[in-house]
Amino acid sequence: MNPLCFLTGTGTALPGDPVDNKTLGSTFNISEDWIDLFVGTRTRHFGRDLATGEVTHTLTDLCAEAAGRALADAGTDPCELDFVVLATATPDALLPATVNETADRLGLTHLPTYQLQAGCAGAVQAIDVARALLAGGHRTGLVVAGDVTDRFLDTAFDTSRLAPQELVNYVLFGDGAAAAVVTAEPRPGAVAVHSLLHCFAGLGRAPGQIVGWHGAAAPDPARRMLHEDYKAIERDVPALAREILWELLGTAGWGPETLHHVLPPQLSGRMTEKITAGLGLPPQVREVSCVQETGNTGNALPLLQLDLLMNRLQPGERAVSVVVESSKWIKAGLALERSATDSRAEAP
C-alpha cells in the first residue's frame, strides 16, 4: 500500500538533570521503595527546580528545542515548512497558543499553525492532521508534542493526605517535548507511515484520568485537580493495546512475523512490561521504550520513542507504535517502515 506520509527527522528535549526516585521520594515524602515497586520508573526530568520551586523550562522552551533538533536532523530549513501542528495537555497559557510561541522562537511566519488539546495520543493525532494537510497539497510540515507538570507539583503539599490514585500523579510523570518533520514525498533517511489509527473508544466509559483546568494554584472546588483510576488503566489498557496492534497490522496488510520493532504504550515502567508481554508478538520483535528514564511525558512519549527508533530501524524493517490515551479512552498508533534501499540507520 502507498504510504500516508513520511517522517524525515526527529528531535527531543528533556529539561535539566534526571531526577531519581530517591530525590523524588524525599521531596514529596513518598517511599522510594514504593515508587520502584509500584511505578518502575527510575528517573524523569522536570522543568522546575524541586528544591527552589523555580521554573527553569516552559513548554515553549522545550518544544522549540525539540523542533530545532528535528529540523536539523531532517536537513530542513525552517523556511521550507508549510505548517506546524502541536499537541499538548499543558499549554503555557490559554492564549497565546503555545504553538504560536514555538513558531515565533523558530522564526516562522505566514504559515498555518494548529494546536491540539490532547493527552497521550496527541502526537498521533498531530501526525493525522499533518497527513491530511499533506494530502491537501502541502509538502513539508512540523509536528511537535510535549507536556510540563510544574503547575501540578506542589512541593509544600502534604502527600500523606492523598489516596493512592492521587499520589500516583506525583511519581508517574515527567516533562519533555519531541518533534518530527513530515513530508509528502520520501527523502533520504525517511520512514514511511503505512497505517495510522486514531479513534475515540470511550463511549459510555468513565474517564481513566482527569486533569483539572486551573492546576494547584487555583483548583476548581467542584472537581479534583488530578485523578488517576489506576485500576481501570491496569485492566483496560493491555486489551486496548492488543486491539490497536492487530488493527494496525491488518490495515497495513502485515503479518506479525514481518514486524521487527514495537513501541508500546508508556504509562509507566511496570505497566509497559505488562502490556508488552500481553501483545502476543513473536520473540524477535524488539521493544522500543524510554519511560523508565523519562517518566510519563504525556504527548511527547510516542515521538520520544520514534526518535529512538529512527537510528535502530534498518532498511526494510517495520515497526508499530501503539498508543492508548486513558483520559477518555482513545486508541492510536502508527505502522512504520524504512525503505529497503535506505542506508541511514545504524545498529543500536
Score class of each variant (00 low, 15 high):
residue 262 V to Y: 03
residue 300 A to N: 05
residue 270 R to D: 00
residue 291 V to F: 07
residue 272 T to P: 10
residue 269 G to K: 06
residue 261 H to E: 01
residue 300 A to Y: 06
residue 263 L to F: 02
residue 239 A to S: 15
residue 261 H to W: 01
residue 321 S to G: 12
residue 310 M to N: 04
residue 242 R to I: 04
residue 290 C to W: 00
residue 301 L to I: 15
residue 296 N to F: 14
residue 301 L to M: 15
residue 273 E to S: 12
residue 274 K to T: 03
residue 255 G to S: 09
residue 296 N to L: 15
residue 276 T to N: 00
residue 238 P to K: 14
residue 323 V to R: 01
residue 272 T to I: 13
residue 331 K to C: 08
residue 307 D to M: 01
residue 325 E to W: 00
residue 301 L to N: 12
residue 274 K to M: 02
residue 331 K to D: 06
residue 250 G to W: 03
residue 260 H to V: 00
residue 256 P to S: 12
residue 305 Q to E: 07
residue 333 G to D: 10
residue 285 V to W: 04
residue 252 A to F: 00
residue 282 P to L: 01
residue 289 S to L: 03
residue 332 A to Y: 05
residue 319 A to L: 02
residue 297 T to Y: 00
residue 239 A to G: 14
residue 271 M to L: 15
residue 293 E to A: 10
residue 313 L to Q: 09
residue 259 L to G: 08
residue 255 G to E: 11
residue 243 E to L: 07
residue 261 H to I: 00
residue 333 G to W: 08
residue 283 P to Y: 03
residue 274 K to E: 00
residue 291 V to R: 03
residue 324 V to L: 15
residue 275 I to N: 05
residue 311 N to Q: 14
residue 250 G to S: 11
residue 308 L to K: 11
residue 257 E to W: 06
residue 240 L to C: 15
residue 323 V to K: 04
residue 315 P to Y: 10
residue 318 R to L: 09
residue 242 R to Y: 04
residue 268 S to P: 08
residue 315 P to S: 11
residue 264 P to M: 07
residue 319 A to P: 06
residue 252 A to R: 06
residue 320 V to F: 00
residue 278 G to W: 01
residue 281 L to V: 07
residue 328 K to I: 10
residue 264 P to Q: 03
residue 282 P to Y: 01
residue 298 G to H: 07
residue 319 A to C: 05
residue 248 L to N: 05
residue 318 R to A: 12
residue 285 V to A: 06
residue 243 E to W: 07
residue 256 P to N: 11
residue 238 P to A: 14
residue 330 I to S: 06
residue 323 V to I: 05
residue 272 T to N: 14
residue 257 E to C: 06
residue 293 E to Q: 10
residue 264 P to A: 08
residue 265 P to F: 00
residue 272 T to V: 09
residue 273 E to P: 02
residue 268 S to N: 13
residue 252 A to D: 08
residue 288 V to W: 05
residue 318 R to D: 13
residue 332 A to R: 10
residue 280 G to H: 02
residue 265 P to V: 01
residue 244 I to H: 00
residue 321 S to Q: 09
residue 303 L to K: 02
residue 255 G to A: 08
residue 249 L to P: 00
residue 321 S to V: 05
residue 259 L to R: 04
residue 243 E to R: 12
residue 307 D to L: 08
residue 324 V to Y: 15
residue 307 D to T: 11
